[in-house]
Computed example of a mutant assay.
Amino acid sequence: MKQREVYVHKLQTQLDEWNAAIDQLKVRADQAEADVKAEYDKHIDELRQKQQSAWSKLEELRQAGDEAWENLKADVEAASNSLGESVNLATARFK
């Protein structure tokens, strides 16, 4: 497997894990009382926006030529790291 394919697979796996964590937060939000649910929903919306950004960057990386993907890698990592940090903070906050 090429280095890019390994990287894309690893990142996709991580994004899938974070998606599952966001889904779990949504389940908790649906079970929460109205005042807490509103706060959950706000954070979930923010997470979904960051998630969409990370998926878009990953798709750009997939479509990039062999030479261009290295240049996109930093943008993908920044979007991914931002999502990961936000998911971890939200998960810790809403335990």
Rank of each mutant, 00 (worst) to 15 (best):
A21V: 07
R62Y: 01
S53L: 12
K2P: 15
A74T: 12
Q24N: 13
L15T: 06
Q3L: 14
Y40D: 07
R28P: 11
V27Q: 00
K50V: 04
K95W: 04
G65H: 01
D45M: 04
K26H: 14
A32R: 02
Q24W: 07
D41W: 00
I44N: 11
D66I: 15
R4K: 10
R93T: 08
K57G: 12
V87W: 02
D35W: 00
E46H: 15
A64W: 02
L58H: 02
E60F: 11
L58Q: 00
L47V: 04
R48P: 03
A74H: 12
F94V: 04
L47D: 03
A92Q: 15
E59P: 01
L58V: 03
Q3T: 14
D30K: 05
K50H: 10
V76N: 03
S53H: 06
G84A: 08
K50Y: 09
Q3E: 09
H9P: 15
A90P: 03
D41N: 05
E39N: 14
A74M: 09
L25F: 06
Q51H: 13
G84W: 05
V76M: 08
E46G: 12
M1Y: 06
I22W: 00
Q51K: 11
S82I: 02
A54C: 05
N19L: 09
A92V: 08
I22C: 10
A90G: 05
E60M: 04
E46C: 07
E39Y: 10
D45A: 11
E67R: 10
A90R: 00
Q51G: 05
V27T: 07
K42Q: 06
L83F: 03
A32C: 00
A79G: 01
V36C: 06
L25I: 01
K37A: 06
W55S: 13
V36W: 09
K26P: 02
V36K: 06
W55F: 11
N19C: 12
N71L: 14
Q52D: 15
N88V: 15
L11T: 06
D23T: 13
L89H: 12
K95Q: 12
E67C: 07
V36E: 15
Q3M: 13
A21T: 08
R48M: 11
S82P: 07
D16V: 00
W18Y: 13
A64I: 02
A38F: 04
L83M: 04
K10M: 10
D41P: 01
Q49Y: 14
S53C: 14
K26T: 15
R4N: 09
